[in-house]
Nucleic acid binder design. Structure first.
Length: 638
DNA sequence: AAGCAATAG
DNA sequence: GGTTCTATTGCTT
């Protein structure tokens, strides 16, 4: 046990923080400050916020015949997560159950949480619907540099310590981190009505491990000198985040059960099972070492809908299920505003002998003309995608023999933002020579002003109320006024851009390999994802302002500035964010405007791919004169 | 680009 | 090592 002078919590060293050498001499003071937030029994909380009368009763959220989560009242009776409904009712006959198969409200609240956190600091990484990591290293360093305090103190618990007895001034950065965590939890509560736990530590691993030390609705800070203690408190390898069932079984086969076993196991032997890199990674985890960065999630990479059931065994039922799933998925996709370019169908087959739970999938590109219909909300999108879905289905299932499905999932991925579909960003990233159009767009982004989104603007530039993606944008930028104006960079190929700090050349940044980009993004504490709202096709309709009761409650009490009013250029091309547009130099505005008026063709056809080398075994169901509402309609040639 | 494995809540 | 309904990343082809 070496005490490595770990209390040197301070320093922050060279004030200017040129991130030049990322892996530089990492003295203890350059440790990160990472937060982990975990909403208390999330689905149940969402239901209680929606219906406060449920607060005081034992409440469970039911999906099919499972209670997926429950409130703390129900836990008093012994109800637990993932308990069967019958078992839960035995434990607690008065248990109130609400159906939770439809994730809409959970998903929406989940993104509101992430947005609220992002409004304080953009480096937020989602983990599932109810957890978020945040890297606040630079904010903490900045605060201490600008306003040093003599008597620091912790908010909440300190792991293994009597709260009052800690000499917080020896850990100023973690102490400030705990204050920020408390402030953010307070904001989550006052703005969204949600309670949460938080962990404050020097890595994602430790922050996550420590966040659960005091539950519910409490927070805990881990001092570096107690890293060994918290790791030692784990009673099995499976409790280490990153070691799942499979890895756990493999480790068991190697004779490793306790965390200590993994710590001392010969690395070379571990590498035989898991490969060099993975072996090192999991052994590091066992030592409480985790250098993985907090990687901003941005908007989702895929949208999917699924349903499980006892049995589907006919094509007719299959088509119906496909239609149902696709209908809701299309609605979500339309609101998102991005254009899906690949479609995946996955199934689970019933198997009595081998009750192995495995899924099989087939996927294919979505023709651009169909993708566009998804965006525009055309009613033609549904039948055309059902048709594609059935073809994928037939690649999975031989319908001339009996079949028995127990689950179906439809997924849209490879989501293209408006900018992508206009052919600007793709080449920016992948191509060697960015087109003129690309240059101009990057220029225009660079010229734009900082991220204060104005609700009033939405009235001017949007025609329909939306959720998901756009909510993300609108709330995410409400309190970022302290951030310096920056340049933009495309974020993860979607309807989003990543604003880079002013001193980072986006052209240079874009040329870096992706893993390098990911590594250095956490050093940009002024970076932020921002959504470019897609433009609705139907002009005229107005959106309402008050459709999100959660976010409009309790506007006081949190230092989120009331956005001021800003004029929006009346003549703004529909394919450009008016806020961005209004900041452009007049000549660029002119050019964009005239381009738009000329309806300049902007779509680029991805590749001349020979569609499916002759469609392997696919019966081109010949085009029969089709009846509406007939199954056959889906078998027309596309 | 496709399909699956593994991990996560 | 199975429940639900997602979502992400990485490996292999």
């Amino acid at each position: 046990m070496d005490e490595d002078e770990d209390d040197a919590d301070w320093d922050t060293s060279s004030g200017s923080s040129a991130p030049a050498s990322t892996g530089g001499g990492c003295s203890d003071g350059s440790r990160r400050v990472v937060l982990h937030f975990d909403l208390d029994c999330f689905y149940a909380q969402v239901e209680m916020v929606r219906n406060p009368a449920l607060r005081d009763v034992p409440l469970g959220v039911q999906q099919k015949y499972i209670v997926v989560t429950c409130n703390y009242v129900a836990r008093e009776y012994g109800v637990t997560k993932l308990m069967s409904v019958t078992a839960a009712k035995e434990k607690c006959p008065q248990l109130v159950l609400v159906k939770g198969e439809d994730l809409t409200h959970y998903r929406e609240t989940s993104y509101k949480v992430t947005e609220l956190l992002m409004s304080y600091c953009p480096l937020v990484e989602r983990l599932g619907f109810d957890e978020n990591f945040m890297d606040i290293t630079e904010i903490v360093n900045g605060k201490i540099r600008e306003a040093p305090v003599t008597d620091y103190c912790f908010s909440g618990h300190v792991y293994n310590c009597q709260a009052a007895g800690v000499r917080a001034s020896e850990y100023p950065r973690l102490a400030v981190g705990s204050q920020i965590a408390a402030e953010l939890r307070g904001a989550l509560h006052s703005r969204l009505g949600l309670t949460s736990c938080a962990g404050i530590a020097s890595s994602k691993l430790l922050a996550k491990l420590v966040s659960g030390a005091h539950k519910p609705n409490q927070q805990t800070t881990l001092l570096p000198k107690y890293t060994g203690d918290i790791i030692g408190s784990l009673t099995g390898l499976r409790q280490i985040p990153g070691i799942g069932y499979r890895t756990g079984e493999k480790l068991k086969a190697l004779g490793l059960l306790a965390v200590r076993d993994l710590q001392v196991f010969h690395l070379a032997a571990l590498a035989k099972e898991f490969g060099e890199a993975n072996a090192q990674r999991i052994q590091n985890l066992a030592h409480g070492i985790d250098e993985s960065p907090v990687t901003p999630s941005g908007p989702p990479q895929s949208l999917s809908d699924e349903d499980s059931f006892k049995e589907i065994s006919t094509v007719t039922e299959t088509v119906k299920k496909l239609e149902d799933l696709l209908t809701s998925l299309l609605e979500r996709m339309h609101k998102d505003g991005r254009q899906p370019s690949t479609f995946r169908l996955t199934i689970r087959r019933f198997s009595s002998t081998d009750r192995w739970f495995s899924r099989e999938s087939r996927q294919c590109p979505i023709p651009i003309h169909i993708g566009q219909k998804v965006i525009s909300g055309s009613s033609e999108a549904l039948p055309q995608l059902v048709s594609i879905g059935i073809k994928l289905f037939h690649k999975l299932i031989d319908t001339s023999a009996p079949f028995h499905l127990t689950l179906m999932n439809v997924c849209f991925s490879n989501l293209l933002s408006r900018r992508d579909t206009k052919g600007s960003i793709k080449s920016f990233f992948t191509a060697k020579s960015p087109s003129r159009q690309d240059k101009k767009e990057s220029l225009s982004l660079r010229a734009s002003e900082p991220c204060v989104t104005l609700p009033e603007e939405h009235m001017n530039c949007r025609t329909e109320r939306t959720t998901d993606n756009r909510d993300f944008e609108s709330t995410a930028s409400t309190s970022l006024m302290q951030l310096k104006p920056t340049t933009f960079h495309k974020g993860r190929g979607k309807n989003w851009i990543l604003r880079l700090p002013a001193d980072v050349d986006p052209d240079v940044f874009s040329l870096l390999p992706e893993h390098i980009q990911k590594e250095i993004i956490p050093t940009f504490h002024t970076a932020v994802f921002q959504h470019i709202p897609p433009v609705e096709s139907r002009p005229g309709a107005m959106c309402s302002l008050h459709d999100h009761p959660l976010s409009t409650r309790d506007t006081e009490g949190l230092n989120v500035p009331r956005p001021s009013s800003l004029g929006v250029n009346a003549a703004c091309p529909p394919n450009v964010d008016p806020r961005v547009f209004s900041e452009l130099p007049p000549d660029l505005q002119q050019e964009l405007l005239s381009e738009w008026k000329q309806q300049k063709p902007v779509l680029k056809i991805p590749s001349k791919k020979v569609v499916k080398g002759g469609s392997t075994k696919e019966k081109k169901t010949t085009g029969q004169p089709s009846q509406a509402n007939n199954l056959l309609k889906y078998f027309k040639p596309n």
